[in-house]
Design a protein around this nucleic acid. Structure first.
Lengths: 200, 200
DNA sequence: CCATAATCTGAACATTATTCAGATCACTAA
DNA sequence: TTAGTGATCTGAATAATGTTCAGATTATGG
């Protein structure tokens, strides 16, 4: 795969570490995580292939860097999506619950290769760090609490809320992306999830 | 990566196509789907690298062959796991429902790299072929029908059963494999799934 | 302004996927 | 049995890749 070399004014790039990640994201988006080439990334930035090794010990490390960047971006995007439905009333709270899943699905649909990078075994999480610390998990927790608070969801079903909602949305996105379920299944899933969790 | 060459008696291998798949599975299991080397596969079989091109037009094609093989194996494994709980009574039927998910999870835990091959974007399904034709989907459908028949699950929740059960198990396995959820979450999920689907 | 450290280059090496001309073998027809 | 034909596999070649390292270039602090 040949990539056009980009010219550069100074010998030093200035912000190569960040540029490498940005460029890698661009190429992974286009060619998939398993087809990322370090040389192509360097070439895009008009930099020699070995320059990258000053910031990342190897290709895997760069990919992990990309993963961290994307996880943060994904969480931020989910937080922002909630702002569309402010308020403590039942309707708004239910909308927020749906919107979390939808935002996740929409992002993954637009960026299937980036989603694959995050969950296809290219960057596994550090063991020992609990998922409770995960910001996106906290968002879901909070929204479920609010559902119970405003009486839109029975307390009895609350304890299983996070895991059931999180896993089913994750699974639906995966299966739809890989062609095992039609896109239309996603709204069906949200319907079923609400019904099963007693959200009404 | 250097692999020991295996000797061969005859010039013709005899069953190279199948052997290539078997050998590829072995290496993917060990080194992950993104680290499969055609040359290593050939070397394992004591065959020249170019021999593979008589059966597969390229590496991707071999990987797809592996995927088909594994999907069939996975379905067969799930079917067999149901035989452990025969009978139409409530207890047996509920056990079968749980066992489908558990068998899936157990397989993925033992073979994380093979699971990643199947759902990490390495072999997407042919569009146009509906998931209804999928054998593993049919197994789940049948088991859910049996749950309703024996009165262990309300009819009202039945329509969402497949998608909810399938996606949540799929998602749980993915998230646990990539370190976003602890292993113990899986049994929690099954509990929650049963509670939410009204299985009792 | 100089010395030192940070940053980047260039050339090298081993490994990879892929191609293709030709060697080897199995099998059929005479 | 034997010649020939097509299937099967080899060997060598090419282009691309990750990675290393000695050295060139530049920024920076005294």
């Amino acid at each position: 795969m040949s990539v056009a070399r980009v010219s550069r004014t100074s010998y030093h790039h200035g912000n190569l570490e960040e540029a490498l990640i940005t460029s890698a994201i661009k190429l992974i988006r286009k060619h998939g995580p398993d087809n990322l080439s370090l040389r192509a990334v360097a070439s895009e930035l008009g930099v020699s292939p070995s320059a990258a090794y000053h910031y990342f010990p190897d290709k895997d490390s760069l990919i992990h860097g990309v993963g961290d960047h994307l996880f943060a971006e994904l969480t931020q995007m989910m937080e922002k999506s909630l702002e569309k439905f402010p308020g403590k009333n039942i309707k708004a709270t239910k909308s927020r619950f749906r919107e979390i899943g939808r935002a996740y699905f929409t992002w993954a649909s637009k960026e299937p290769n980036l989603f694959r990078l995050l969950f296809g075994g290219f960057c596994s999480m550090d063991r020992g760090k609990s998922h409770k610390e995960d910001s996106s998990f906290k968002i879901l927790e909070k929204t479920l609490d609010e559902l119970v608070e405003c009486g839109a969801m029975p307390k009895k079903l609350r304890p299983y809320g996070e895991v059931l909602a999180w896993t089913s949305v994750q699974g639906a996105v995966t299966l739809i992306l890989e062609g095992h379920l039609p896109k239309s299944s996603f709204e069906d899933l949200l319907d079923g999830l609400e019904l099963a969790l007693g959200v009404r």
